[in-house]
Design a protein around this nucleic acid. Structure first.
Length: 249
DNA sequence: AAACGTATCAACCGCTGGGGT
DNA sequence: TACCCCAGCGGTTGATACGTT
């Protein structure tokens, strides 16, 4: 029953990648490009599955990745986008060149969620928490027969709005939230951000170029990449990318 | 200094949807 | 139309770094 595994896992390595593995994968992709991820580990001589290689490349090795902590300006943008798209991390990440969906997802789960809770906002619905609780209580009062699990399921459905792509496309076109947010939700989010800005928790002078920093990988000078690959020190430190913007401009 | 708790993030797992046959 | 394969996605886990007692 079920699908066959994406690859024969016997003899395949798992867990953290070594510098040598990174080096091999980087070298292979830059020399050969990516046609089929399943073939990449075989051709590159890596004891990994294609999926693992793909993830490593996307989340760590891609030369156009932006390194360093997520700025407050980026954070603000993430919250606004999350209010609109929900947990569609790749969609959100597409607004941040150089950031990965995994990075944004992790940042959301570990930091932003908490921040919103402190600010009195429900990280799922982006509603003020009290209001949300009241609504829930009201709802429970009316529908005593329905189980709490059913309600959770409904919330889940609303929040995920998974791939009812038609709906999404429509609401995106109309400039509405595909996440089930109405004007009230969005304005409450905006109010919080305005108050944050007023209280200078945000740095208004934040350089907008930090948000959308780096161009696309095909623009990278080939010799720069090769130099980077050949240099063992760059495999140990990502500082080599700190001045990527200067190189690209 | 050691033990414990918490936060962070890289990596994995399983599901989904698109494309090809 | 049905099936298969694959890339991509989002949720979850586990290792480790960091902070606190």
């Amino acid at each position: 029953m079920g699908r066959q595994p994406c690859c024969d896992k016997r003899g395949l390595k798992r867990g953290p990648w070594t510098i040598e593995e990174d080096h091999k994968l980087m070298n292979f992709i830059l020399n050969n490009g990516i046609q089929c991820w399943r073939l990449v580990p075989k051709l590159a001589g890596l004891p990994r599955c294609g999926k693992s290689c793909r993830l490593r490349w996307i989340n760590y090795l891609r030369p156009d990745l932006k390194r360093g902590a997520i700025t407050e300006a980026e954070e603000e943008m993430i919250i606004r986008l999350h209010a609109r798209f929900g947990n569609r991390w790749s969609k959100i990440a597409s607004h941040f060149p150089g950031r990965t969906d995994n990075e944004i997802k992790n940042h959301w789960n570990t930091r932003i969620k908490k921040k919103l809770k402190v600010l009195g906002l429900d990280p799922v619905t982006h509603n003020p928490i009290e209001q949300h609780e009241n609504c829930k209580a009201k709802h429970e009062g009316i529908q005593q027969s329905s189980s709490s699990r059913e309600q959770e399921d409904n919330l889940e459905l609303n929040s995920h709005d998974n791939s009812s792509s038609k709906d999404n496309q429509m609401s995106e076109r109309e400039g509405k939230s595909s996440f089930g947010l109405d004007e009230t939700n969005l304005s409450s989010i905006n109010q919080v951000w305005e108050s944050l800005e007023a209280g200078s928790m945000l740095k208004p002078e934040a350089d907008p170029s930090n948000v959308f920093p780096v161009g696309i990988d095909e623009d990278l000078p080939a010799d720069f990449l090769q130099q980077w690959i050949d240099s063992p020190s760059h495999m140990l430190s990502w500082d080599g990318f700190n001045n990527l913007e200067e190189i690209l401009l």
